[in-house]
């Protein structure tokens, strides 16, 4: 409080320059991914907890087939988006747009594959969300993931539209990169879903 000392004012030590903090987009996206992971974790736990607990058929072994083609498509879309960003970083906008469109195509193929699988399960095998615990947990977990793919595709398509209009330039690399983080997250979740539902669950 009372300052009776006669020392002259001191000059503080210099502040670290330039003062750079992490990018807001990335920190925000990682926070969102953390929250999303927690939501998926609960659905995965419910799936694992109810494996083999259905009191009536059909069972996963009877009706599920390994979605190899779908998986390959989705996982390679992570590679294509990576290439797209690499091109944008170098300022090669044509290559960026091409790889970006390819990413969307692969994601759409995945979604179409899921739709066909569901159609097959519902109309040929008679498995709905009401049938048994397997149906309940299967449709909700795979559906939650498919919902995230849909949201991702919407975001990617928006960027594609901007790119086709010539609005996406090298300086937007950081922003587009944030979106790609989300897409990678959706892919990683699929790896978990694949192992839980189609490998361990069968």
């Amino acid at each position: 409080m009372s300052s009776t000392t006669l020392t002259p004012p001191l000059t503080p030590p210099p502040i670290e320059t330039p003062w750079v903090l992490p990018s807001r987009g990335k920190v925000g996206m990682f926070s969102l991914i953390a929250a999303e992971s927690a939501i998926f974790t609960i659905f995965v736990v419910a799936y694992v907890f109810y494996i083999g607990k259905s009191i009536s058929g059909p069972t996963p072994r009877e009706v599920l087939e390994l979605p190899i083609f779908n998986t390959v498509c989705l996982l390679s879309s992570s590679l294509t988006i990576h290439f797209a960003l690499g091109a944008l970083k170098k300022g090669n906008r044509a290559v960026f747009t091409a790889f970006w469109a390819l990413t969307i195509a692969l994601g759409a193929i995945f979604l179409f594959g899921t739709a066909r699988e569901w159609h097959h399960l519902i109309y040929d095998k008679g498995l709905t969300i009401q049938t048994n615990l397997f149906g309940t947990t299967y449709y909700s977990l795979v559906g939650l993931h498919a919902f995230h793919v849909t949201v991702g595709l919407f975001g990617l398509s928006l960027v594609l539209a901007f790119a086709l209009l010539g609005w996406v330039k090298q300086e937007h690399y950081g922003r587009v990169d944030v979106l790609s983080l989300y897409w990678h997250f959706v892919d990683v979740v699929w790896i978990v879903v694949f192992f839980v539902v189609y490998v361990a669950g069968r």
């Binding site: 048994n132 615990l133 309940t136």
Partner: peptide, 11 residues
Amino acid sequence: GAHFFDTQAGG
């Protein structure tokens, strides 16, 4: 009509 917490269906 899912069965997450439905004990009648094994939930």
